[in-house]
Measured scan of single mutants.
Amino acid sequence: MGTYKLILNGKTLKGETTTEAVDAATAEKVFKQYANDNGVDGEWTYDDATKTFTVTE
């Protein structure tokens, strides 16, 4: 398990959240659902060194 971070750079929603997941693929699924639930759809990037996903609208 590891802690993964999501940085939201949406047009109307900005912020950060974290999740505990077994791997990056699992964290990505959780974060994409979170972003979708909050109406954020954009370009995704992932930094393996910091376990950080970023979505920018």
Results as ranks from 00 to 15, higher is better:
34 Y>P: 00
42 G>I: 02
11 K>Q: 11
28 E>G: 07
19 T>W: 08
24 A>Y: 13
29 K>T: 09
25 A>Y: 11
44 W>E: 00
22 V>E: 13
29 K>L: 14
29 K>I: 11
39 G>Y: 06
51 K>S: 06
17 T>Y: 15
15 G>M: 15
42 G>C: 02
41 D>E: 14
10 G>R: 04
35 A>N: 02
23 D>T: 05
15 G>S: 13
5 K>P: 01
27 A>H: 00
33 Q>I: 08
16 E>F: 13
45 T>H: 12
25 A>V: 10
8 L>R: 02
24 A>M: 12
24 A>P: 09
29 K>W: 09
5 K>Q: 05
14 K>R: 12
50 T>A: 08
24 A>V: 12
23 D>S: 06
43 E>W: 13
41 D>H: 15
36 N>P: 02
40 V>W: 13
48 D>Y: 09
3 T>R: 09
27 A>M: 01
18 T>M: 10
12 T>G: 10
44 W>C: 02
6 L>W: 02
49 A>P: 08
55 V>H: 01
23 D>R: 03
36 N>V: 13
19 T>M: 15
19 T>V: 15
56 T>W: 09
9 N>P: 03
23 D>Y: 03
36 N>K: 14
11 K>H: 11
55 V>G: 01
23 D>C: 05
23 D>M: 03
42 G>V: 02
10 G>Q: 04
25 A>N: 10
30 V>C: 07
47 D>N: 10
22 V>S: 12
41 D>F: 13
14 K>H: 10
43 E>D: 14
42 G>D: 02
18 T>P: 02
1 M>G: 11
22 V>D: 07
29 K>A: 12
57 E>M: 07
51 K>L: 09
49 A>L: 13
33 Q>N: 08
24 A>R: 12
10 G>E: 03
35 A>T: 05
56 T>I: 07
10 G>A: 10
4 Y>T: 01
49 A>M: 13
3 T>M: 12
4 Y>W: 06
4 Y>K: 01
37 D>N: 09
27 A>C: 02
14 K>V: 11
22 V>A: 14
49 A>Y: 11
12 T>I: 12
40 V>Q: 03
32 K>R: 14
16 E>Q: 11
15 G>I: 15
7 I>Q: 05
19 T>A: 08
40 V>C: 05
32 K>P: 00
35 A>L: 09
45 T>V: 08
42 G>A: 02
8 L>P: 01
55 V>W: 04
55 V>S: 02
54 T>Y: 13
24 A>Q: 13
14 K>P: 06
43 E>C: 12
48 D>F: 09
19 T>G: 03
16 E>G: 07
33 Q>G: 07
14 K>W: 10
30 V>D: 05
42 G>S: 02
11 K>L: 12
37 D>K: 09
22 V>G: 12
20 E>W: 13
45 T>G: 06
43 E>Q: 13
34 Y>L: 06
40 V>Y: 07
36 N>E: 14
32 K>H: 10
32 K>S: 04
31 F>A: 01
8 L>E: 02
51 K>Y: 07
49 A>T: 14
45 T>R: 07
4 Y>P: 01
17 T>W: 15
28 E>R: 09
42 G>L: 03
6 L>G: 01
15 G>V: 14
25 A>Q: 12
21 A>R: 03
29 K>G: 07
3 T>Q: 10
2 G>S: 15
14 K>L: 07
27 A>K: 00
6 L>E: 00
47 D>H: 06
15 G>K: 13
15 G>L: 15
32 K>E: 04
56 T>L: 07
39 G>K: 07
48 D>G: 10
24 A>C: 09
17 T>C: 12
28 E>A: 12
1 M>V: 11
49 A>G: 07
3 T>I: 14
46 Y>R: 02
7 I>G: 01
10 G>I: 08
26 T>Q: 13
40 V>M: 08
7 I>F: 06
26 T>M: 13
45 T>N: 07
56 T>Y: 08
6 L>M: 04
33 Q>Y: 05
51 K>Q: 11
1 M>L: 13
53 F>L: 01
22 V>I: 13
5 K>W: 11
51 K>N: 08
5 K>V: 10
19 T>P: 01
11 K>D: 07
25 A>P: 08
9 N>T: 08
26 T>P: 02
46 Y>T: 01
18 T>I: 09
4 Y>M: 01
24 A>G: 04
40 V>G: 02
21 A>C: 07
2 G>L: 14
53 F>E: 00
18 T>H: 09
57 E>N: 05
52 T>K: 03
21 A>H: 03
29 K>N: 07
39 G>T: 04
18 T>F: 13
26 T>A: 15
12 T>A: 11
3 T>L: 14
12 T>W: 15
42 G>T: 02
9 N>F: 12
39 G>Q: 08
52 T>F: 02
11 K>P: 11
11 K>V: 12
44 W>V: 02
17 T>A: 12
28 E>M: 15
33 Q>E: 09
38 N>P: 01
51 K>G: 06
10 G>M: 12
18 T>D: 05
37 D>H: 08
33 Q>C: 05
55 V>F: 04
52 T>H: 02
17 T>D: 03
16 E>D: 06
13 L>C: 14
56 T>G: 04
41 D>I: 15
29 K>F: 09
39 G>H: 08
9 N>K: 08
51 K>R: 13
41 D>A: 13
19 T>D: 03
36 N>I: 15
38 N>G: 04
53 F>Y: 05
2 G>A: 15
22 V>C: 09
32 K>Y: 06
10 G>W: 05
54 T>G: 03
9 N>Q: 10
49 A>Q: 12
8 L>A: 04
4 Y>A: 01
10 G>C: 13
30 V>K: 08
28 E>T: 04
12 T>V: 12
40 V>F: 11
16 E>I: 14
15 G>Q: 13
48 D>E: 14
46 Y>C: 01
29 K>V: 11
12 T>F: 15
28 E>Y: 15
40 V>P: 02
30 V>P: 01
20 E>A: 09
12 T>K: 13
2 G>E: 15
27 A>F: 00
26 T>F: 07
10 G>H: 06
3 T>S: 07
